[in-house]
Design a protein around this nucleic acid. Structure first.
Lengths: 247, 247
DNA sequence: CGTCATATTGACTTTAGTCAATAGAAGTGG
DNA sequence: CCACTTCTATTGACTAAAGTCAATATGACG
């Protein structure tokens, strides 16, 4: 575990600031204070647990690099992945106010994670009360994504569900500047895609084949390519509004 | 539409205060300011729309009486209910920071709704910055419930799903003091239960029959009775922790 | 009494799950 | 480098859960 006394890496903080400014512009002082947020940076291997279900962490994690997901374990070993996190995401900001954690967090690929102490967040908000609305917004967007996932699981076919998930990730990754040549790194296995969509891995496999045959995606070597995002959006009945990507 | 110049009904505000104190105790001054929150009270008939998907309300609604649900409409008329609201719930607090609304809100029974202007919330938070954590908490609990619903839809059978939903409502209603003789008013139709669980109404009907035959519930005249809540909890693999009902 | 929404039932279809076998791919130790 | 393990991906055959369609019943209400 390494430590950045000056706060998170500058690049990442710029990223976080840019994200929060989707909600409301920040003042120079607010930006400055965000930049001074302390954090310990830690690396995780694929498959490692970043946070335990039921834990009461006194810090929240920002994903700096790699991919992670939040999940719940149910009886008989079933798993439900409830979100996929990409660089720049506050992985568990809600545990600033909501403890214990109702889910675990795992790294889906090698990942760099910055952990920001809740005490530092509390001081930040004491100094800049207006920022509390920005954090509220971040938590609320997370809720909006969960609701869209609910609609996805409840009312869409496996084919549409996967298409919808890929659209969501495409838009989020694109906003984060991580889409290159119409594709991006997606380290999720078919088992994990199944756990995210409430499907068996066998059925995921077959639905992926259908998406491939329809020319909507390629997916190999942990890289997803979408040659025609409009076509995928249309198949998935996808509307990016719920992501609140526009400032 | 009637108006309470002195704020929400006292009973309801006590209720809201009690709820927020599940997160952290409030000071006398904070309580006082909450009591002074202005609100217009409005009545709705069953089936009426309380808020439109895509709207940008400048107030948030507190459900005072009755039952409501939030839902999304998908292509081809499919509907996904993403939450069920009971008295005391902030139906759309998140729209304080998150607009436009990504879902609609409808009354599931005759309902009384208090609408609190965002401007008043903003002033409340300016005066009592610490309260922002309480509101953050309320939004975060909402997210936790959505995540549990995700696990429900993704990884449980129709029978378990309905049992789980009934457990959740039982616990929430009980906390609100609305459980009498092991049951409570549940105005949802089988179609609506289906839309909440991602099921067809026919399958809901059959699953309800199974729950009845197993002696776990009775459900008639819009009233759900659970003679043995522990048995239902056990069938549903239900753990109330995610509701954060304990102070 | 007629209307409308909801609930119930039966017959049948479809989607997705399960089980099992095989094939790849990545990593490990010799 | 190769045998070995392990995890993942793929395929086929079969099963089961849930959906669809259609008919009927029930209940609330004007």
């Amino acid at each position: 575990m390494s430590c950045c006394p000056g706060g998170l890496e500058v690049r990442m903080i710029e990223f976080l600031i840019r994200k929060l400014e989707r909600f409301a512009p920040l003042t120079a002082e607010e930006r400055e204070s965000l930049k001074l947020l302390p954090s310990k940076v830690r690396n995780f291997e694929r498959g490692q647990t970043i946070a335990q279900q039921g834990a009461r962490p006194d810090e929240s994690a920002i994903l700096l690099e790699g991919c992670a997901f939040r999940y719940k374990l149910l009886k008989e070993g079933a798993r439900q992945i409830v979100s996929v996190q990409i660089p720049g995401d506050f992985v568990d900001l809600h545990c600033f106010v909501l403890r214990p954690l109702d889910h675990a967090v795992a790294a889906a690929s090698p990942a760099r994670v910055g952990r920001v102490p809740h005490e530092a967040i509390r001081q930040l908000l004491a100094k800049h009360p207006r920022l509390s609305e920005s954090l509220m917004w971040d938590i609320a967007v997370d809720g909006a994504i969960s609701r869209e996932w609910l609609a996805n699981q409840g009312r869409r076919s496996a084919y549409e569900q996967l298409a919808h998930l890929f659209c969501e990730l495409y838009f989020r990754m694109d906003w984060a500047g991580l889409v290159q040549e119409q594709g991006f790194e997606l380290p999720l296995t078919q088992i994990e895609l199944g756990d995210a969509c409430g499907l068996s891995s066998v059925h995921v496999n077959r639905s992926l084949q259908a998406l491939r045959q329809d020319g909507l995606i390629t997916f190999e070597n942990h890289r997803l390519t979408v040659p025609n995002i409009e076509a995928l959006v249309s198949q998935a009945d996808f509307d990016p509004a719920y992501l609140h990507l526009l400032g």
